[in-house]
Computed example of a mutant assay.
Amino acid sequence: MSLAAVTREAADGRPFLLAALRAGVVNYTAAARYLESTTDLTGDTEAIATALRRYAEELPDEDSESRSVRVAMESGLGAVDGTSERAGDALLAVGDAAFEPGAGSLTGVVATGEVDAAALSHALSRLAAAGVAVVAAAVGGDALVVVVERRDGADAVRVVEDALSAVPATG
């Protein structure tokens, strides 16, 4: 496999680098050094940087799309056993974990409308960048739910609303 192909494969395996390449905000030499230090990619740093530069030129720009959603906050969520009868009222349930209204001090951010896995991924990335710890999250049908600590509820609502106003287009 050529150095260019190996470089592309290494970049494809790092979503943050791929996003930066698409956005045109990469120091190619620094990115080449990073790939050399974190992968089996070896060679001339400048050759790797050149391969990254050429790859970036071929990548489509990252478009975003606004989603039609309604975001609300549900206070007082608590963790309950997802296998119990009580879990039937849960706002979010995955495996043995369920989060039910009136059972604790957590907050749920609920977005309904045009949501999907890409929207959830984008919202989670933005919440992480904002320093909001997520306890649980899921998407299904036309609902997206993110569970956070009570003190983070208002910030989480603002971040999720903003994130869903410009979700990277998936293709």
Rank of each mutant, 00 (worst) to 15 (best):
Y55V: 06
L17V: 05
A137V: 01
Y55I: 08
A4G: 03
A133R: 15
V157G: 05
V147S: 09
L52C: 07
A79Y: 00
A5G: 05
D44C: 11
V139R: 03
A169V: 09
A30Q: 14
R67E: 02
T42I: 08
S165L: 05
A143H: 02
A49R: 11
G88Q: 14
E62Y: 04
A156N: 09
V135C: 02
P15V: 06
D162A: 15
G140H: 02
S2A: 14
A117E: 14
E149K: 13
S121Q: 13
G88P: 03
L17K: 06
V6Q: 15
S2P: 15
A156H: 04
A156R: 02
T39F: 09
A118D: 15
L59I: 12
V26C: 03
A4Y: 08
D89M: 05
E46F: 07
A30R: 12
R8S: 04
A117P: 05
G141T: 03
D162N: 15
R151M: 11
D44W: 03
E149P: 00
E85W: 10
G78K: 12
G76I: 06
E74G: 00
T29Y: 11
L77R: 06
L17P: 09
L106V: 01
G95F: 03
A123D: 08
G24M: 11
V80I: 13
L52I: 10
I48W: 07
V115N: 05
R70V: 10
R150V: 03
V80T: 05
A154P: 04
S64Y: 13
R158K: 14
A51N: 08
V6F: 07
R14E: 14
A51L: 11
G141H: 05
R33T: 00
A87W: 11
L124T: 07
L21F: 10
G24F: 13
R158H: 01
A56H: 01
L92R: 14
V94I: 15
G102A: 11
E46Q: 13
V25E: 15
A123Q: 06
P168C: 13
R33C: 07
A19F: 04
A117Y: 08
H122V: 10
G153H: 09
A128R: 14
T39R: 00
E57T: 12
A133E: 15
L3K: 06
V159E: 09
R54F: 10
L35F: 09
S75C: 03
G141E: 01
T112K: 02
E114Q: 15
L77F: 06
E9W: 03
T42V: 13
A56M: 01
G140W: 02
D40P: 02
S37H: 00
L144G: 05
Y34E: 11
D96V: 01
E85N: 04
E46G: 08
G108L: 09
A87R: 11
P15W: 05
A31E: 06
G104N: 10
V148M: 04
G24N: 12
E161H: 08
E74T: 15
L77I: 04
V69H: 09
A51I: 00
V148E: 06
R33F: 01
A143V: 13
F16S: 11
E149L: 14
G113P: 14
G113F: 12
